[in-house]
Nucleic acid binder design. Structure first.
Lengths: 233, 233
DNA sequence: ATATATTGAATGAATATTCAGCAAGTATGT
DNA sequence: ACATACTTGCTGAATATTCATTCAATATAT
């Protein structure tokens, strides 16, 4: 009903094209099928892609939107700002990571050694340990020091995780009277896993399997009474 | 009577004093005395500051110029572009790091164990291992995967370093017939040191000393025939 | 019909880059 | 000594670019 200026005729023509192009193919992404939550998730995935491919500094909303096959303004509609999209993305990865190691802990046996083994294995699981996700983590790490919000979510292994590792190491020490300080060993172990992640991300031909093997070697060496190369005793 | 130039708020005042400053002892930075190389170095230091303080994404040429107490156009005059300034900065840090561990290796004794000990100690030396520099490294890490130029310089421990560590581990193994695979141990060791760096940078109250102690604990455990907590045997 | 999701052009803010000009030094001529 | 032209480091306003954000128009679903 609203009357349009002369210039707008062009615009309309352009839009018509875009629409008909959209109708032809993909129902899944185009069309209005997607729920709000689905669309948010789709945008988060596109953000991880962009972070992995281009790094934090080069990640633009345009790239995210393109990656999701949607239009330019879409992010500001579903998230309020770029900043909020990035925080939601980081939050998602942190939640996923935490859920993953918690699940691994559930499935592990009662024995302390089984728990430690399971936690280490979880870190090198295909689901978590992909180049794509490691690269996205690393993109955030680079910015974390100067942004409290990121820092809180980025201590990839958060306080709860770190406390757990320390407690488990202390338990192992008590069981077999190893001589080392539990906190020191726990620090060394988790630092090593982070370093292995980092190397995987940088991708010098290091594989997940080799990285896991290095971590296992460490376990066997430090906890000889509890671990073998094949698994916990 | 000396001119103080630490406060950026007084930019105008400082600029005015350029003339009189030349007369005083301040001619190192102000005035026209600074050689091209000196000025480049000054700008590189300001860049490290900015990276450490604001992260890669938030580092602007304006901030670098302000940090150096110079004018806006200065970076494009001495370096050609922002990109080239950043590469020069990374190159500087990589050179400094390499020079540092090479020097440590020189000073170390002939024994293989002394060399390994020295390399580990070098990584946690005050000169290299400051929060400022670790933060700058981390800023580059985040971007490295998507930029070949950075990636080449960022494998903080480069090919030469990695080969050296592997060779030393193999040597120790031969001397005392440890059972592990030298490459695996070398990987674990260097990954752990990188992880410790990372944690120091994130700064959860971890100190250089504690980090070094964790690395030493590892050496003692893995090479019991060669190492003690106090040093190589 | 109304509400909701989506589009994409327009806007504006941030910031890298350019460049004409200034000033401090230096060389040459008188 | 002094003057003149020339070089070099530097400045900062102007320009160009990139990109997040906004919003009116439009499409789709209920």
């Amino acid at each position: 009903m609203t009357v349009v200026l002369s210039l707008k005729n062009k615009k309309v023509a352009v839009r018509m094209k875009a629409v008909s192009a959209a109708e032809t193919g993909e129902n899944d992404r185009r069309g209005r099928k997607a729920s709000k939550e689905t669309r948010r998730q789709q945008l988060i995935e596109a953000t991880i892609d962009s972070l992995a491919k281009r790094g934090y500094a080069e990640t633009t909303l345009a790239d995210v939107a393109d990656g999701a096959g949607l239009s330019r303004g879409i992010v500001n509609f579903h998230f309020e700002s770029k900043e909020k999209l990035l925080i939601a993305t980081l939050q998602f990865m942190a939640d996923e990571y935490a859920a993953h190691w918690n699940a691994a802990l559930e499935k592990a046996g009662e024995a302390t050694s089984s728990k430690v083994w399971a936690l280490v294995a979880a870190d090198f699981d295909r689901k978590i340990c992909t180049k794509r996700k490691l690269a996205a983590w690393c993109a955030f790490w680079g910015e974390a020091k100067s942004r409290p919000t990121y820092q809180a979510l980025c201590g990839a292994r958060d306080v709860k995780y770190q406390d757990l590792i320390v407690a488990l190491c202390a338990q192992l020490k008590a069981e077999a009277s190893y001589s080392y300080d539990a906190e020191t060993i726990a620090l060394a172990l988790s630092a090593m896993m982070e370093g292995l992640w980092f190397r995987l991300m940088m991708g010098d031909g290091l594989t997940r399997e080799k990285a896991h093997a290095a971590a296992v070697e460490y376990l066997v060496t430090v906890f000889p009474g509890h671990m073998t190369h094949q698994g916990p005793k």
